[in-house]
């Protein structure tokens, strides 16, 4: 230690990944709270839940599942591309991931505006006059998909940052922790949706 006291920060890929995984655990528990609420009300009002779920559009839900699963694959492939030092391919794959994420959001927008058109939104009069279980189902539906959409949005921001950094060559074969961690985050978004989809769309 001498006069020049510059604080050294080391680069430890394993540490970065472990930190990201533990962060994903917290995300799982964040949604976990909502899944717990879902489980309790599902057990209390199963008939109402069936009724309400049948009003959701299974086609839109399935389409979104396809978008997310495919985007999960492309982002995973982009890491392989970086590992093989193929930056152009990695760039293309991240771009495709972003487009698929965008399609997911467009789809979600269509779905929500359709529901809003029927005055089905949290706190609306239509909802308040529904049976209690249906009201709670829609409350859960909006909160779960809303929180999920927020995560998709954050994921898109992360992917855009990666896109730029791959283009500029900041992310390359020797240093791609950011892409790896963003990929992990994106898979988590996918993972949550894998549970949300059957619980919200397929209970009728």
């Amino acid at each position: 230690m001498s006069d020049h006291a510059v604080h050294s920060e080391h680069y430890d890929r394993e540490a970065g990944k472990l930190g990201m995984w533990i962060f994903l655990f917290t995300e799982l528990f964040l949604f976990g709270g909502l899944f717990l609420v879902y489980a309790v009300f599902r057990a209390t009002y199963s008939a109402d839940f069936h009724e309400a779920a049948s009003e959701l559009n299974t086609f839109i839900g399935t389409l979104n599942t396809v978008f997310l699963l495919t985007s999960s694959m492309t982002v995973a492939m982009s890491i392989t591309a970086i590992q093989k030092n193929n930056r152009t391919l990695a760039f293309m794959l991240i771009l495709i991931t972003l487009i698929l994420a965008g399609l997911f959001m467009v789809d979600k927008y269509i779905e929500w505006s359709h529901e809003f058109a029927y005055k089905v939104y949290p706190g609306s009069e239509v909802l308040k006059n529904m049976p209690r279980g249906e009201l709670l189902f829609f409350g859960l539906y909006f909160m779960m998909t809303g929180l999920h959409a927020l995560h998709v949005f954050i994921g898109m921001i992360l992917l855009t940052i990666n896109l730029v950094k791959v283009k500029k060559g900041i992310i390359h074969r020797e240093n791609y922790l950011l892409l790896e961690n963003s990929g992990l985050y994106w898979h988590l978004v996918d993972l949550i949706w894998i549970f949300l989809f059957p619980l919200l769309y397929l209970v009728s």
Partner: peptide, 11 residues
């Protein structure tokens, strides 16, 4: 938004 999770009046 009176989402109703904790409100007995809303189930």
């Amino acid at each position: 938004f009176s989402i109703g999770f904790f409100d007995p009046a809303l189930g």
